[in-house]
Design a binder for these strands. Structure first.
Lengths: 195, 195
DNA sequence: CGCGGGTTTGATGATGCTCAAGCCCGGTGG
DNA sequence: CCACCGGGCTTGAGCATCATCAAACCCGCG
């Protein structure tokens, strides 16, 4: 049950067996069906969720009713609204399962105790935040410097395992374009291939 | 010399006088003239810089030679490439003074010692990262859900003190539009005002 | 078989980019 | 003190990209 979590953590900090089994005690397993929500706009996001199996997305809905995907996450990733989770303010995001999923949840109390009992986890979560920030900054620069075609190609390169699993319209939303535009981009790409 | 830093830190953690004077020992003051660089692309970003006075920007240059502003920072803010600073990898950014500026620099060793000697600072830097991530995520959503006009108006609201100090073309770059487009947006806005 | 969600296609229009030129203003040197 | 220069901002015309809206298509599922 915890192998994936263990491998994930090992990428950032080294834990012995005792520490790891201590740490697992803080997580609560939870299943989420396809189209189920971990949180919805207005909720307080009570959990940071590690994905053991499945696929989720976080997104906002603007005042025109259009969705904007912030993040995808699959096995071995985390998903949450860190802001709401850490401040207790209501979230502006929806976090939805795109497949039947199995999560390992960490609530705020567990998070505090975990970082207190095993201080290495303070570092661990800082590294997660840091990597997330770096990726998010790169995304902004990419959106300013690259065309939609190139951003789609980058996405294919960077997240091949996600492309296979999520509907195109969500990818379009992530890239900041309409489904129609993504459709046309894909058409052009196969056209070029066949020349 | 350290009042601004003290106020800034007090927003996130509480330090007594002893702790604060301990902490100041880790900082190195440095002046930077207008148009001077703290780091340039290819350098390792050796410092996290707290701005005591002045104004800086970080930006990348893409392969067409176009600049893309990632961040502005004025008194009471930090600027750095956290990625390069924390990993030791060369940075892809330029960090340039837009005015004569006075900085308080923290190098990697000082950073490590500071977080070790005064563990509250671990929390402090995590909060900084976290706030930065939240703001950066909002920026992506805003770029997907709002027009350039609205993003400019938001910028005026959110960073009035920066608008006064920074050339318009840098603001255009931050917003992801050309200087010409920003110029036209501003023209339309004053037209509307006068009706 | 027919329904419905997701994707594609087409036509049209808005938004912002590119390139080129002009304007404004502050700084410099005669 | 003034003429000139240059950088930054503005303006204009034409164009590319992508959004919008509406309709068709495709395919899995009841």
């Amino acid at each position: 049950m915890y192998e994936i979590l263990r491998k994930h953590i090992a990428q950032y900090i080294t834990l012995d067996d005792v520490e790891f089994s201590q740490c697992t005690a803080f997580f609560t397993p939870r299943k989420l069906r396809k189209r189920g929500f971990l949180v919805q706009e207005g909720d307080v996001c009570k959990y940071a969720a590690f994905i053991h199996k499945g696929c989720l997305r976080s997104y906002t809905v603007d005042n025109k009713g259009d969705e904007h995907v912030l993040q995808f996450a699959i096995e071995g990733w985390w998903i949450s609204d860190m802001y709401s989770f850490l401040t207790g303010e209501p979230t502006g995001y929806f976090i939805e399962a795109l497949e039947d999923s199995e999560l390992l949840l960490l609530d705020r109390q567990a998070y505090d105790q975990l970082t207190e009992n095993i201080p290495k986890f303070e570092r661990f979560f800082r590294l997660l935040l840091q990597n997330n920030l770096i990726a998010t900054q790169r995304r902004i620069i990419a959106e300013h410097s690259k065309t939609a075609v190139d951003r789609y190609l980058d996405f294919l390169q960077t997240y091949p395992s996600i492309v296979e699993r999520v509907p195109l319209r969500h990818i379009a939303s992530y890239l900041g374009i309409t489904p129609e535009a993504l459709s046309r981009i894909r058409r052009e790409l196969v056209n070029k291939e066949n020349k």
